[in-house]
Amino acid sequence: MQGSYFKNLLEKLFQGEITYEQYLDLKDQVKDSTDEEISSGLQSLWDGYSLAEPMELATKFGVLSNIHQQIGVENTRNSRRTNWWRYAAVLAIPLLIISTYYAAFHQKTKYDFTVLTSEGEKSQLLLPDGTKVWLNSGSKITYANDFSEDNREVRLIGEAFFEVKKDAKHRFVVATEQVNVEVHGTEFNVSAYPDERDTKVSLLSGKISLIDPTNNKTMATMKPGYQVAVNKNLHRWLSYSCDVETEALWVKSVLRFENAAAGEVFTKLEHWYGIKIHIENPDTSIRYGFTLKSESIREMLDLINKITPINYKINGEEVFIRYK
């Protein structure tokens, strides 16, 4: 590992100025380095700042809990200090949260933690209140550093499945552009991708209320086994029964379609693989039923070809399809 280059990348990371190419370099260097090298680099950077006060314990716990959930490391008291830093350094870049630490050290102010997933990737995190969140491809979740029992609110762009820690006295809120979801303890899925017409909320267990963010009025109260779709253009919503477990199978790395319209299928496949699909001659009458687990893009397209004959071409991250 090149010591000075590593320290320079860390400096850019803490200041929020790191580029994507530099992020990849830093991630590779962290993976290939020893605990002692990482500790030395971070300590050198740490000593270069005049910190007004240490990081709040609650903030540190929240960050490290998220790190554990992301990389599957058990929280043990005997973990070495350098290992904590290794995990933090590896994870902090894709989560884009460590760039807020510097401001937090120098002044008492509110700031946000933001967790991102790239196209074709998924992640899991644990919120400070014990709520578990699975974040789907191309999604972002944001919550404040003062997230606590009195402020259990997150903002979501994209799709996430929530297993909310039960607390009858304090509501948990998922805020999206079209609808806010209020719960006290339950399991549900929210899909709020900017490029999709509908924001969809599916309830697996418990009870939730959907709130109109423009007037704070209740739009609907949901019961398990139902999905509500809020149309972004018409500002209307529709409630219907659905197989919520199937809707949430993506958290187990399974994507299943049952009599699904072609448009819905290809939209979900775009998020699943992190690609852009172009249909030359779309047919809205076509319905699909199949399951994906670890299939490649080409294997997926061959599967579709067996159901409805197609010609396809893969060009990098773009796929062109024409029905025969």
Rank of each mutant, 00 (worst) to 15 (best):
S148Q: 06
A88P: 04
V115S: 12
H235P: 01
Q107V: 13
K60C: 10
F172S: 02
D28E: 14
L249P: 05
G274R: 01
T176I: 08
F6V: 00
N231T: 09
E177P: 02
K122I: 10
V244C: 03
V154K: 05
S148L: 11
V181H: 06
I141W: 11
W250C: 05
G185S: 01
A104Q: 15
D129Y: 08
D150Q: 14
K122H: 11
L204W: 04
S205C: 02
R86H: 08
V190T: 04
F257S: 04
R80H: 11
V181N: 06
E163D: 06
V190D: 04
L127H: 03
L126S: 11
S99A: 15
W250G: 05
S209M: 11
E74Y: 08
E159G: 05
E264T: 13
W85G: 01
P94S: 05
S205I: 08
L96D: 10
L45S: 03
D28M: 06
G120M: 06
T214E: 11
T267I: 07
N8H: 11
T284D: 11
F61V: 10
T19D: 03
A103F: 10
R86P: 01
N259T: 02
E187M: 10
I307C: 00
A220V: 07
L13M: 14
I208Y: 06
Q15H: 14
D150Y: 13
A229Q: 09
Y193C: 04
L203Y: 00
G48Y: 04
N231D: 14
K268P: 01
T267Y: 03
C242L: 11
I157G: 06
S241K: 14
F147V: 12
H106P: 01
I307M: 00
P282C: 03
N180Y: 13
S253W: 10
L51A: 02
T176N: 03
G185C: 04
R256V: 06
K207V: 10
G41D: 00
H170W: 04
V63C: 05
V254E: 13
A144C: 09
D32H: 12
S44M: 08
E36L: 12
